[in-house]
Nucleic acid binder design. Sequence first.
DNA 1: TTGTCGTACTACGTCTGACGTAGTATAAAA
DNA 2: TTTTATACTACGTCAGACGTAGTACGACAA
Lengths: 120, 120
Amino acid sequence: MTNISSDVIRGYNDTMILYLLLNGPSYGYEISKQIKALSGEKYIIKETTLYSAFTRMEKNGYIESFQDASEIGKKRTYYRITDTGRTYYREKCDEWQLTKEVVEVFIHKKPDLPGTMTDA
Amino acid sequence: MTNISSDVIRGYNDTMILYLLLNGPSYGYEISKQIKALSGEKYIIKETTLYSAFTRMEKNGYIESFQDASEIGKKRTYYRITDTGRTYYREKCDEWQLTKEVVEVFIHKKPDLPGTMTDA
DNA sequence: TTGTCGTACTACGTCTGACGTAGTATAAAA
DNA sequence: TTTTATACTACGTCAGACGTAGTACGACAA
């Protein structure tokens, strides 16, 4: 079973989180569930990774935290994306296209044909 | 200008090097030039990154080093890919396909259409 | 002859993002 | 009342990338 290694996703966790915040403010637990669902259970972000991403991105000005006053139950920290964050997100999207192009030069596609690449 | 960040390529430097070694043994300087050329000058691997990748991969049994006896001028360390390395390479190719699928869920493609995504 | 350029490395230290482990705390459900 | 799900924080470790620096040899020019 092939798994996504953290080294690959590294640097794109922030992008995934920002993508979800484009649709409006959200908070940790919800975002982690959305990442899991949208990735088809293929990627599950670790809690520590997620929360440290929030801290980092707020420090960088990509997101802003706030408390929802009209909250009944548990207190949550919500985050909303800033304009700087939106710009950063778009840059990461461009970067991704470039990276993909480059990496794929060095990648053999899965054959989908029998008898290829088995040996020799 | 969009640049490829090291965090993205991280974990795929090894894969690129192995890809080049599939065609036969090679050495540091040549590989770095090939990466530059094949990527269309878009990615230039740092010397330290390259040589530490060699060390790591040899330790992991993905490559083997040797000296070319029939060498005239400068002594070089050549590397050849092992069977373990070939297997690892194929796994990384599979992983890449999976990663790409997942990441692209969270990526907006460049519109190529005017008037989209400018604001709200 | 001296100097510079290209080639071919090694050594060492730093940074960053991911993540393991652990602990806290509250609301809801059993 | 105890568990389960939610919602975090703290702290430390690890690995890969990379900055800086230095060594060394061959070729070629001035």
